[in-house]
Design a protein around this nucleic acid. Structure first.
Lengths: 212, 212
DNA sequence: CATAATTTTGACCATATGGTTAAACCAATT
DNA sequence: AATTGGTTTAACCATATGGTCAAAATTATG
């Protein structure tokens, strides 16, 4: 594989990533990818046989970068639960803010073809799926026992947390329109605040009943 | 318009609704809609000139049924804030459970073509958009002043609430796979619980600092 | 420098898809 | 029964799209 090879390949991957993320699988056109990469359509097929093969690679790249953020935080045994959550919320919202279409893209694709998409995801998560959460559950339950946090089901808590982080990005056009008169800057500011607000919200919700 | 007219038209609308919701605009095929309606493709065009016109009508129908659930609850001045939220959470999760693809559909389309989709939505919401939330803000702020609930920005609260209701449905395949080993029944049970858990979670989060 | 190997391109193909049309069908009216 | 008006269909059209191929351009190799 020559230098030029890697270069063109990278150009294609880059263009494909943009187009697929913007338009989704059905909306994306091989021609548009070729144009955006500044080359002939046949060349795209020369490097990646078919649209589907190209898409798979893109999806896995995107998801592979997106997924570990969850795992790394939940896995760290040392950190107290509430710190874990704080760290998670901050890094997740930052990640999404910098890659604003990733969340919609993943959601879009998993709803388009759940079976296939789950297969791709499994190749990345492997068997680790359950482990991530088991670790979190353990340390959460311990904290509950020590009455550091109020009793709560770990799944509900995780989903509450992820929901509050992810939804504003997925539903951004809608939310921005409905609640911010479509004012971009106002919404950006809102997102910046949100990191702290969400943490505070969860923190308050988890305050044990007998604390002051 | 004859009886038969209304019947075929309804059949088309019904089929189109199913197909569009399952596949989204790009994924949907006029032929598939015709098949599902049990008729010729040309007939679909005879009733609704183009795919786009048909789609618009479907989207507006779907959104029109989906949207008021927000407004009605937030508008009611009498109800105490926490009751409003409880009512909202219950009715929203029920609505989504019964129309499981609606949320994904709306999200999908608004990300596909925000401009156009917002236009369609505006035809339904009219100028009422702001009003809904203004009413909620007023009664929330009053409750805060009376120290019935802890201080919180009304937008953050609304988005927190909607996030926690909607996200599990939008991300269902992913969540079900990651946290429930793809077990359908387990996830359904989880959703049933969730109505109460979310209400309780918000309730705890909004408990004023000085209450026991 | 000549030859081989690889990369890139323009032209092309088969198929799918949204959309049209003319004719067939059918129900009501005279 | 014939006419009329709307409904439904089969066949068709133009275009878009994923994909292929042979030739040209470029690069590596002797």
């Amino acid at each position: 594989m020559s230098e030029k090879d890697q270069n063109t390949e990278a150009q294609i991957l880059n263009a494909a990533r943009n187009v697929f993320i913007r338009k989704g699988y059905h909306g994306a056109r091989m021609q548009e990818i070729a144009n955006e990469a500044g080359m002939n359509k046949a060349l795209v097929h020369y490097y990646f046989r078919s649209k589907e093969k190209l898409f798979r690679q893109i999806f896995m790249d995107v998801f592979a970068r997106f997924f570990p953020a969850i795992g790394n935080v939940l896995t760290n045994e040392e950190m107290p639960v509430m710190k874990k959550i704080e760290f998670f919320v901050h890094s997740y919202i930052d990640l999404l803010a910098e890659n604003s279409f990733i969340a919609s893209f993943i959601i879009m694709e998993i709803n388009r073809d759940p079976e296939e998409t789950l297969n791709l995801m499994q190749e990345i998560t492997g068997d680790m799926r359950g482990q991530y959460f088991a670790g979190f559950k353990a340390s959460l339950d311990k904290a509950i026992e020590n009455e550091e946090v109020a009793p709560v089901d770990f799944r509900q808590l995780i989903i509450n947390t992820i929901s509050m982080c992810v939804f504003p990005f997925i539903g951004r056009p809608l939310v921005q329109f409905m609640m911010f008169n479509n004012d971009n800057d106002a919404f950006e500011a809102f997102l910046e605040n949100r990191k702290h607000e969400v943490v505070q919200f969860i923190n308050a919700a988890l305050k044990p009943a007998n604390s002051k």
